[in-house]
Design a protein around this nucleic acid. Structure first.
Lengths: 252, 252
DNA sequence: GATCATAGTCGTCTTCCTGACGATAAACAC
DNA sequence: GTGTTTATCGTCAGGAAGACGACTATGATC
């Protein structure tokens, strides 16, 4: 029995990326300006079609590299290269989410340290890092004073889901280190948590917690003073991926 | 600018279901026997094509109803009907996961109380509840003595992901009640945890924990003795969905 | 009916973790 | 030197969880 192509409807499959980073104490996401209809001129999440010969993770990694130059590292692989964290987020397939045709989008979540500047196919003016509140709060205004129109398609929903995933995942995993450069201090890691959660954490309790969790942080021996004040020990991410017991997010 | 269908490859999009339940103190999944090639005669997860006019959750709910008669209730909706819990799990899109063509499958996870008997389009002999260890351990043998062939396609991977999702999610949510009938006892809920995690829990500490968590359980006033021993209070699931602090899964 | 097995429920004790917060250390700015 | 900033160590009280004793209420068995 062969396969009848008319027995099922054809779909286009895309990957969309929620790329998060921490800049100036704020959680920011990568947005690109759409150059064509629909939603021409509006901001959207980066993404593109899945090609015929690549799987979903490869497509997401390719898009991430095209937009940011980041080399994604597979969380399934043990190798800890200098790339960003990349994982599948969720899939969105409302019949009318794209007015042109039936598109199913497999959204991915990427976490990256603070990067120089985004590039969208080499055109920096069409890509930017924006605080997630600015992208999600359609009543807000951008830094340049232009009214912040809602993101194209259902991308506000996708971004919200990605932010929520990141917020909950740094509770019970060591993923917050993905927002940090290869070497970082306890204070820098704490500022990541504070930016992602939007709260203030006690530096002393935080220090006790992260240094007391086996496998979370490995001291490199160096120190730095880039934040001012007393020099701080430098660490890199340890092998542990799951934090047990987890970091506790202060309620409200 | 119109849309050129040749600009992207066409995909088939399916939903596959990991339907879990607890039977006889074991975590079981619904498997259906394939009636056609490829993998003819092998066990697989239930699933089917997404139709042109339905979104992914609707397609999953439809497949679930067709296979089990269960009425799924959307976790996004607040209504708590008598149906099963249904949520999106992950999406699988390896180029060669289906030898016939490019198929992207959006897997969903369903949790249901112990049900009478499965039905696959009315044919019960082609559907069964099987302990997940039996389905995942390709070296094992089924209850009827036939060698347990691995699941079709990449369904073993999907099932493993679904089981892992369920195991971790009952830690920090009240989802374990989805495995229970509308009214249940603390002991029945404990046996759900024990079956899903494969551990033994202290009945006294478990009782203290679940009855002390606000919003987790609501006493109905009735009692039952269906498990033998002293009659136990009957409860139904409370409004709380997130457990804080979570249930702690014993290590090892 | 007495005894036993089974399951449910209440308490106690110890240990660990966390939040609150005082105190000290080491840099820089003036 | 003084003040400011950040890092780091210590102390203490409160809460949650694991271990486990004790008691209760049913059905089964003798």
């Amino acid at each position: 029995m062969s396969y009848d192509p008319s027995a099922f409807p054809p779909f286009a499959v895309t990957v969309d990326l929620v790329v998060l980073t921490v800049r100036r104490h704020a959680l920011c996401a990568l947005a690109v300006r759409r150059g064509e209809a629909p939603f021409q001129g509006r901001w959207a999440l980066p993404g593109g079609f899945v090609r015929d010969d690549e799987d979903l993770a490869q497509a997401a990694a390719r898009e991430l590299a095209e937009e940011t130059g980041l080399c994604a590292h597979d969380p399934e692989a043990e190798a800890q290269d200098n790339g960003a964290h990349l994982e599948q987020l969720a899939t969105y397939g409302d019949p009318d989410r794209d007015p042109r045709m039936r598109v199913v989008s497999v959204a991915h979540l990427a976490l990256a340290p603070d990067l120089p500047a985004p590039r969208a196919g080499g055109d920096a003016s069409n890509a930017r890092w924006a605080p997630v509140e600015e992208l999600l709060d359609r009543a807000g205004y951008g830094r340049d004073g232009e009214p912040a129109a809602p993101l194209a398609f259902d991308h506000a929903r996708i971004l919200a889901d990605g932010v929520e995933r990141a917020r909950s995942k740094i509770e019970y995993s060591s993923l917050a280190t993905a927002f940090c450069p290869p070497e970082f201090t306890v204070g820098e890691l704490r500022r990541v948590y504070e930016a992602v959660w939007g709260v203030a954490l006690d530096p002393r309790n935080f220090h006790r917690k992260v240094t007391g969790t086996p496998g979370f942080l490995v001291p490199t021996g160096g120190t730095t003073t880039r934040q001012g004040g007393r020099p701080a020990q430098l660490f890199r991410a340890g092998g542990a991926t799951l934090l047990n017991p987890p970091m506790l997010r202060p309620e409200v």
